[in-house]
Amino acid sequence: MKRIVPVLVVVACIFALWYAGSFLMNRAWVMDQAARAGTEPGFSEVLRDTMNQDRAKLPAPHQVAAELYDGILDKKVTSKRSLVYHGFITFQATMAGFALGIVAGVALAVAIVLSRVADRTLMPWAIISQTIPVVALAPMIVVLTNAMGAGSLMVPKAIIAGYLSFFPVLVSMVAGLRSPDRMQLDLLRTYGASPRQVFWKLRMPASLPYFFASLKIAVAASLVGAIVGELPTGAIAGLGARMLIGSQFGNPMIMWSALFAAAILAAGLIWIVGGIEKLANRMMGGQRA
């Protein structure tokens, strides 16, 4: 209960601000309409009319909620207007990219920790890769994968998602694999352990908490990557495509509902990854606060 109250207070504040914003931003249109009709609306009429516009500049929360409900629960999931349909497409690309990011991140981290040469050569490139705006890269990746015969947008989207999600995994895994201190390494040396044994018995298990901590960031980055991959690439399905359509057709409701669908998806993914992290923690002896 104590933890819920502050959360509710914040949510209430956001709603209050949002409603206030809706009123202020949508009022101009109401006043316009009234001026044309030659009427002088009272405050309550203005308030009512700002809250229920079809093409509001800033739709009110209850409108977005209704649109979300409609998009998620009222439409058949196979419908092109269902948010579940679009969400699933984005989800697939996110998961593929997430898997790609994990594999690439872990593989690079292992190479960097085991080889001095890799450390010197790969790490700077990994950092540079994250400074290039992904929006600029996305169309190029689409063109290239198409030229190589990918056939669908799933492959480039997964690559873009992986491109964003490998980095947090890489950075955490390098830190994790290097976390054993001098004493622990000396101990294994006194046992005459081989480098392979040092890696599997000490470095790998020591890095796991770092790995799981990085997954939460990586999955969120992967979702962002998948959505960004849908924006400038002419995609017609996926939450990113939905947002673009909403903006092109001047229908903010579509944008807002797609945005919230993406937020719900992100929350779900992070919740699941957090659960996996807890489970892994318990299996590894638990109780490390």
Partner: peptide, 27 residues
């Protein structure tokens, strides 16, 4: 020789038995 360090340096992810088994596994 067996070496005992200033800190116990037990692996937190292994049980006490698992920690003692560590050198035995390696050897």
């Amino acid at each position: 020789y067996g070496y005992v360090f200033q800190a116990a340096g037990l692996y937190p992810w292994r049980t006490i038995g698992g920690n003692i088994r560590l050198p035995l596994e390696i050897m």
